[in-house]
């Protein structure tokens, strides 16, 4: 027993003495683990040889030119945008309505609405994906394009709501009271007082929704039927059947879109807001 106590005591003293250095090492190692693969991807997009050769003999912009002259890849980007842009607009509208209703109105089923707006994150993507293909394509017979847009809306609503709702909850309600006291009705108040105040959160929610939709794969993969591939589906086919170094270039495109969108979103809200939610 006393031996155990002594070992425990030594452990305590060790942790006490080295804790902050251990923390620094853990942080550095994990950040390296998270960012090295991305660095490799960017580096390999400039590699001259095939995919299988590392380190590359020489650096080149060749694959960027190949990508730019590849009609299928550009077509995939256009297809993705024709889905992501309407899906984002719908999602932002619906998420703002959810945030407004949850924040302002007490109604029966309010907690159910919140639950429904959270569940798509929790139910495994493959389960929702096949449920959608069964119902949209099998039962309702929706056109493929409509199915994909609706699927993207369902996929992005939870994330947009998680960003937009806090900006409503933290908004100073007395400004609205003042507006109403001065004679404005609910909608005029919403336009002139509420919306300008929550606008950064709404835009941030929209940017995250767009990023998520631009990257969306699982729902799209199941629901899209025979329609044109989106960029993630195109990459999936490339990786599974014929890898070319061009995939590295497309990866860089994805990275740039995601990083710039998220940075603007974070700048508009606050990063700890994302963490708290």
């Amino acid at each position: 027993m006393s031996v155990l106590a002594r070992i425990a005591g030594t452990g305590e003293r060790f942790v006490h003495g080295y804790a902050s250095r251990m923390a620094a090492v853990v942080t550095a190692l994990v950040l390296a683990f998270l960012w090295l693969p991305i660095g490799v991807l960017v580096f390999m997009s400039f590699a001259d040889g095939g995919v299988l050769s590392f380190p590359p003999d020489q650096l080149t912009l060749r694959w960027y030119r190949v990508f730019l002259s590849n009609g299928a890849a550009r077509g995939a980007i256009v297809t993705t945008l024709t889905i992501s842009i309407p899906a984002t607009i719908l999602t932002v509208t619906l998420s703002t309505m959810i945030a407004y209703a949850v924040d302002r109105y007490g109604f029966v089923g309010r907690s159910w609405l919140q639950l429904l707006a959270t569940l798509p994150i929790i139910v495994p993507l493959v389960v929702t994906g096949i449920a959608m293909v069964l119902f949209f394509n099998g039962t309702l017979g929706l056109p493929n394009y409509v199915s994909v847009v609706v699927a993207h809306v369902i996929r992005t609503i939870p994330f947009a709501t998680l960003v937009i709702l806090p900006t409503f909850l933290s908004f100073d309600r007395s400004l609205e009271e003042a507006s109403k006291d001065l004679g404005a009705d609910e909608l005029a108040t919403f336009r002139q007082v509420t919306l300008p105040n929550v606008f950064p959160g709404v835009v941030a929610g929209g940017l995250l929704a767009f990023t998520l939709s631009f990257n969306e794969f699982v729902y799209t993969y199941f629901v899209k039927g025979s329609s044109d591939p989106t960029l993630p589906v195109y990459i999936w086919n490339q990786i599974r059947y014929n890898v070319t170094p061009e995939v590295n270039v497309i990866s860089v495109v994805f990275l740039l879109v995601a990083v710039s969108m998220v940075l603007v979103a974070v700048w508009l809200t606050r990063v700890d807001l994302l963490a708290r939610r």
């Binding site: 942080t27 994990v30 950040l31 998270l34 960012w35 090295l36 693969p37 991305i38 490799v40 991807l41 390999m44 995919v51 590392f54 995250l208 990023t211 998520l212 990257n215 794969f217 993630p232 990459i235 999936w236 990786i239 995939v247 590295n248 497309i250 990866s251 994805f254 990275l255 995601a258 990083v259 969108m261 998220v262 974070v266 606050r270 990063v271 700890d272 994302l274 963490a275």
Partner: peptide
């Protein structure tokens, strides 16, 4: 804040791309 941002950012890139990065490695 900066560290947390560095941790979150990779999450917002494409899932498939992140897998592809590991194929490279």
């Amino acid at each position: 804040t900066l560290l947390l941002l560095c941790v979150i950012l990779p999450f917002w890139t494409s899932y498939i791309i992140r897998m592809y990065a590991w194929i490279n490695i």
